[in-house]
């Protein structure tokens, strides 16, 4: 029992549950499958980004450029869809977007590793480069009017139910793609050597280097994973809104990082879990949805998100400080 309360995830879960109860008491529409499935569908974009961000944060780095990477992959895929939509299928689309993302992520990794430039500076620079070049080439044009099969795919449900009014709703395939990405990330981080190495590198880069970890390979792996997830997320975004705009995603990067941090990942690296990240994204989703359902004017949204971040991070920092103080006392007693 005591162990449960040493996990950050427990506290986020408690916050999610309490918030859900409050919202349901005010508006029972919240706790319906229809609303929850809708939320899971529309937050698949942020959720998929978050999987990649988690990898980078655990490794002790940060990536600001992933929205710009997603803009490039999304735009490339959209152009392909418009030019040769009939010859493509959804698997190919995800693969193309993912691979371009991997390539762009590798550029980030190479600059960070070979020239020892801090990741935040590198990715701020590459974000400007990627986004700037794409906006020039695309002339800021919005792309829409994708093939029929592409818009049909977005409406596929894994299973479909009907609400009291007779309108069908269901668990979207898009949500399933997000869940698959999380499952893959969870498995890699927990059960593979490379996943555990990412934690080692984030915990202490110098020790990991001395212990013989291949830091170059790990950098490439972490940032190309981020790129891959950005690619997948860009296709999800295209599926959700059926429009690709050069300026739709850039500017949202800090929101995603905030969600992952809410879930317990630390910016100094070495900690964070997939379950926590899911809870972090859920907390943001429920907060936004709840304010709407409770008829709070939408411009209050940011105030609450900001407050939540400050309270949650503040509380967990404070808890960690108490914990380390306790440990010092125990060590004193042992002596």
């Amino acid at each position: 029992m005591k162990k449960i309360f040493s996990y950050h995830e427990t506290y986020v879960l408690i916050a999610v549950v309490i918030l859900s109860i409050v919202i349901t008491l005010v508006n029972p529409d919240f706790l319906t499958l229809e609303n929850l499935f809708g939320l899971l569908r529309s937050y698949a974009l942020m959720g998929t980004f978050a999987v990649g961000v988690l990898f980078v944060l655990i490794s002790g780095g940060i990536d600001i450029s992933f929205t710009a990477i997603a803009t490039i992959t999304g735009y490339t895929v959209a152009v392909l869809l418009l030019k040769a939509g009939d010859k493509l299928n959804i698997v190919l689309i995800f693969l193309i977007a993912g691979l371009i993302g991997v390539a762009l992520g590798m550029i980030n990794a190479a600059i960070i590793y070979f020239f020892r430039i801090p990741s935040i500076i590198t990715t701020i620079a590459t974000m400007n480069i990627y986004y700037g070049i794409l906006t020039v080439l695309s002339q800021g044009k919005w792309l829409y009017g994708f093939p029929q099969w592409f818009s049909d795919f977005a409406e596929i449900n894994v299973f479909t139910l009907t609400n009291r009014g007779g309108t069908p709703y269901g668990f979207s395939l898009i949500t399933l793609i997000w869940f698959a990405a999380m499952l893959l990330g969870w498995f890699i981080l927990r059960y593979t050597i490379i996943g555990r190495s990412v934690y080692a590198m984030g915990g202490n880069m110098a020790s990991a280097h001395r212990a013989g970890f291949n830091l170059m390979g790990l950098h490439l792996f972490v940032y190309s994973s981020m790129g891959f997830m950005a690619g997948i997320a860009s296709v999800i975004q295209a599926l959700l809104v059926q429009t690709v705009a050069p300026n739709a995603l850039v500017g949202k990067e800090l929101d995603v990082i905030a969600a992952v941090v809410l879930g317990g990942a630390s910016l100094s690296g070495g900690t964070g879990s997939m379950f926590g990240t899911f809870l972090g994204v859920s907390l943001i989703a429920i907060l936004g949805n709840g304010l709407t359902l409770m008829h709070v004017p939408s411009f209050w949204y940011k105030v609450f998100i900001g407050l939540t971040i400050l309270l949650s991070v503040g509380a967990s920092t404070y808890r960690r400080r108490l914990f380390s103080r306790q440990r010092v006392i125990i060590e004193e007693e042992v002596r």
């Binding site: 800090l254 929101d255 910016l267 900001g306 400050l310 991070v313």
Partner: peptide
């Protein structure tokens, strides 16, 4: 927040950034 709560500067200022811009939106709608 940074000096007395020991929050990391990125997180503390990210939180205030979102909250303060929220207050600005509330004030101006």
């Amino acid at each position: 927040l940074i000096a007395f709560v020991d929050m990391s500067p990125i997180l503390a200022t990210l939180g205030t950034m979102i909250m303060v811009s929220g207050i600005a939106i509330v004030l101006t709608k």
